[in-house]
Simulated assay, not measured.
Amino acid sequence: MIALPPFPTRRGALALLAAAGLPLPARAAGLRVATVDWSVLETLLALEAPPVAAPELRQFREVAVEPEVPAGVTDLGLRGTVNFELLLLSRPELIYSSSFYVSSEPRLRRIAPVESFSIYAPGRAPYEPAVAMTRSIGERLGIAAGAERYIAETEAELAALRERLKPHAARPVIPVNLGDTRHFRVFGADSMFGEVLTRLGLANAWTDQTSYSAMAPIGLEALVRMPDAFVALIPPVPPGAMRTLAASAFWNALPNLRDGRLLELGSINPYGGLPAARRFARLLAEALLKAETARG
């Protein structure tokens, strides 16, 4: 067995933090919680219970966008290889993980108790597991009423958007990320995007199997099989890709593009919880209604 390197002393950890120019953690009200997973992070933020530490905060702000991350949350570095010294220094009393980070959990348990969630699994819709996670976090942190309120608000927002989209429910939607100018990644029924489409009363144009919520790479020619679908394009988009596609005869000949059915959405965490579901529903509804109005 490979021996793990020892953790630094508290004095050494403080020196590390100071050298990195990061703020020293302060005790927040209630249980001190850290997380290594973004779906947990956005859920904690939505429940107004920010963690003391979480990974890749700059990237989270760009990809997930919301909820806003307070300045006092310590950035633990990459999700797959978090900075254990900074995590130790944050003095969490509980660490939230997910099925994506099982391999890190033995080492995380050397710092604090670990509780893990599994929202995403092949062939399983993630919405109800996200609700269960939200409820569990609320109960664990003594904010059950706030968690139930957030769940109810999410259901109400999806129901209201479903009502607004009723006149357009017959048109299928295909949610994609561009890999390059010839390929894309598509999100199926076991993705949060796919399940939100169903809850909005819309059909996912992609009915084939996916691999763990999404499938890639798919050639752009696959869009020919879905000429009536709205293409919901979710960032990130490779630099220069849209400029190249704008000059592509094949791209512009696609019925989806020719008929004004390309929906360019803002960035959304593709493996998020209820906050990501709400953001996708809102951005999609806004783009779809705007496109339908422009098409007359």
Rank of each mutant, 00 (worst) to 15 (best):
residue 274 L to Q: 12
residue 8 P to Y: 09
residue 133 M to H: 04
residue 258 R to Q: 15
residue 131 V to W: 05
residue 253 A to M: 11
residue 13 A to D: 13
residue 60 F to T: 10
residue 118 S to Q: 13
residue 93 E to P: 02
residue 140 R to N: 01
residue 166 K to A: 15
residue 276 A to W: 04
residue 283 L to K: 12
residue 89 L to I: 09
residue 142 G to R: 04
residue 183 H to W: 10
residue 188 G to T: 02
residue 48 E to M: 04
residue 228 D to K: 10
residue 81 T to A: 14
residue 99 S to V: 09
residue 88 L to P: 10
residue 14 L to K: 04
residue 228 D to F: 05
residue 77 G to V: 10
residue 207 T to L: 06
residue 128 E to H: 11
residue 18 A to I: 02
residue 116 S to L: 02
residue 215 M to A: 13
residue 57 L to Y: 12
residue 209 Q to T: 07
residue 183 H to Y: 12
residue 73 V to N: 06
residue 150 Y to K: 05
residue 84 F to L: 15
residue 6 P to I: 08
residue 55 P to Y: 07
residue 187 F to P: 07
residue 224 V to D: 11
residue 184 F to V: 10
residue 150 Y to T: 01
residue 219 G to Q: 07
residue 33 V to S: 00
residue 256 N to R: 02
residue 91 R to T: 00
residue 190 D to M: 04
residue 142 G to I: 14
residue 141 L to Q: 00
residue 38 W to L: 04
residue 160 A to F: 02
residue 160 A to Y: 04
residue 255 P to T: 13
residue 10 R to H: 13
residue 142 G to K: 13
residue 249 A to P: 09
residue 289 L to Q: 14
residue 116 S to W: 08
residue 151 I to R: 00
residue 168 H to R: 13
residue 276 A to Y: 00
residue 277 A to Y: 06
residue 163 E to C: 00
residue 232 A to D: 05
residue 282 R to V: 03
residue 196 V to C: 05
residue 50 P to D: 05
residue 24 L to T: 00
residue 54 A to I: 01
residue 218 I to D: 06
residue 63 V to D: 02
residue 293 T to C: 03
residue 265 L to E: 14
residue 48 E to N: 11
residue 30 G to I: 00
residue 228 D to Y: 01
residue 289 L to C: 09
residue 274 L to E: 01
residue 69 V to D: 03
residue 148 E to D: 14
residue 68 E to D: 11
residue 290 K to P: 00
residue 37 D to L: 09
residue 60 F to V: 08
residue 117 F to E: 01
residue 165 L to A: 11
residue 274 L to G: 12
residue 229 A to Y: 03
residue 262 L to Q: 09
residue 92 P to W: 09
residue 9 T to F: 07
residue 81 T to K: 10
residue 263 L to F: 04
residue 233 L to W: 03
residue 158 L to E: 06
residue 220 L to F: 12
residue 73 V to D: 00
residue 135 R to I: 00
residue 31 L to N: 02
residue 47 L to P: 01
residue 246 A to Y: 01
residue 168 H to P: 02
residue 176 V to W: 10
residue 89 L to T: 01
residue 65 V to H: 06
residue 187 F to K: 03
residue 153 E to A: 15
residue 148 E to P: 00
residue 17 L to R: 15
residue 159 A to M: 05
residue 220 L to Q: 13
residue 105 E to L: 08
residue 114 V to T: 08
residue 112 A to Q: 03
residue 146 G to H: 12
residue 64 A to F: 09
residue 262 L to N: 06
residue 123 G to K: 12
residue 155 E to W: 01
residue 87 L to D: 03
residue 190 D to G: 05
residue 226 M to W: 11
residue 57 L to T: 06
residue 243 R to L: 13
residue 6 P to F: 07
residue 210 T to E: 08
residue 160 A to G: 14
residue 182 R to S: 11
residue 222 A to W: 06
residue 59 Q to S: 10
residue 55 P to K: 07
residue 179 G to T: 11
residue 178 L to N: 10
residue 178 L to K: 05
residue 183 H to C: 05
residue 82 V to C: 08
residue 96 Y to R: 03
residue 156 A to W: 10
residue 249 A to F: 11
residue 199 R to M: 07
residue 143 I to C: 14
residue 12 G to A: 15
residue 245 L to G: 08
residue 226 M to V: 07
residue 179 G to N: 14
residue 247 A to G: 09
residue 38 W to F: 07
residue 87 L to T: 04
